[in-house]
Nucleic acid binder design. Structure first.
Length: 266
DNA sequence: CCTTGAACCTGCGGGC
DNA sequence: TGCCCGCAGGTTCAAG
């Protein structure tokens, strides 16, 4: 989403802001619309699953899409749909529209300089696509953890950005059972897992993300990575290249679905 | 500190 | 047709 927003937003001005309700997951901050109006976008960044739109006035618009959020660019004349909660008119003549049926998403506005210490960010772990992320970082995070490795991956205090789909997918590609105790996963296995995480995320970004239901790319198109899932949402089916009778299994961990191939993951 | 479960909210598909 | 249930890409908080 950030990569698509970048050329559309950088250098543009927010000509008008319409809030079609008072809150998403949280209430909008004080004077939210007024503080955004007439501000120019310096650049678009990201931290974990948060989209960061840095403004020239040294404030940053923070956006999280939650489960069902979409950010799309629309023609100015397009009438608002149900759950279009925030509409930002750009000086390009296009609208940036935030739609979120479940409202687990959020928007906030904060000083750019102190973002790292912001409540939303100060507990976050390492970026998996950074060159500094490797098996050693996973080992440090997993050390002495008795929780299942799948749940340790979902915990954003260790590694950020790995959600429920990509945790299952990365563990499959690394050949590690999601049920293993995190602290018991050996270094040679972590040397498969770290690259598997990077590869899975990069492949999904390239495919425009995963559209199970709500997710759309910024241009409104579906993402296509769901067609590349090895195990996620494939219970009872074979995993890729699996010609044996073994089927993908679905279990619940921490209240969330996990998919894995018992034959290829141990 | 740890882990688990529930809560937030809407929509959709399946079973009856 | 319609109702009820379970489930969904995330995060956070309370309780044990």
């Amino acid at each position: 989403v950030c990569r698509a927003l970048k050329p559309l937003l950088e250098g543009r001005k927010f000509a008008a802001i319409t809030l079609r309700r008072q809150n998403l997951r949280f209430p909008f901050p004080p004077s939210f619309a007024a503080r955004l109006k007439n501000q120019k976008v310096k650049n678009v960044g990201r931290r974990a699953k948060y989209i960061l739109i840095h403004l020239m006035n040294h404030e940053t618009l923070i956006i999280h899409l939650g489960m069902s959020g979409r950010l799309t660019i629309q023609n100015k004349k397009t009438p608002p749909l149900k759950h279009d909660h925030v509409i930002i008119e750009l000086d390009s003549g296009q609208n940036l529209v935030f739609n979120d049926a479940r409202r687990f998403g959020l928007m906030d506005l904060a000083a750019t300089k102190t973002l790292e210490s912001h409540q939303l960010f100060n507990h976050l772990g390492i970026e998996p696509l950074s060159p500094r992320f490797n098996a050693g970082k996973l080992a440090a995070w997993f050390k002495n953890k008795k929780t299942a490795v799948k749940l340790a991956l979902l915990d954003q205090r260790g590694v950020v950005g790995v959600g429920n789909i990509y945790a299952s997918e990365a563990l499959y590609h690394a050949g590690i059972s999601p049920k293993r105790m995190a602290g018991q996963v050996k270094l040679p296995e972590l040397k498969r897992l770290a690259p598997a995480i990077k590869k899975t995320l990069r492949r999904s970004i390239k495919a425009g993300g995963s559209s199970l239901r709500d997710y759309r790319q910024v241009d409104g198109e579906l993402g296509w990575f769901q067609d590349g899932f090895a195990v996620y949402d494939r219970a009872g089916l074979g995993c890729p290249g699996c010609f044996c009778a073994d089927k993908v299994k679905k279990i619940i961990q921490g209240g969330r679905s996990t998919f894995y191939c018992p034959k290829k993951q141990s």
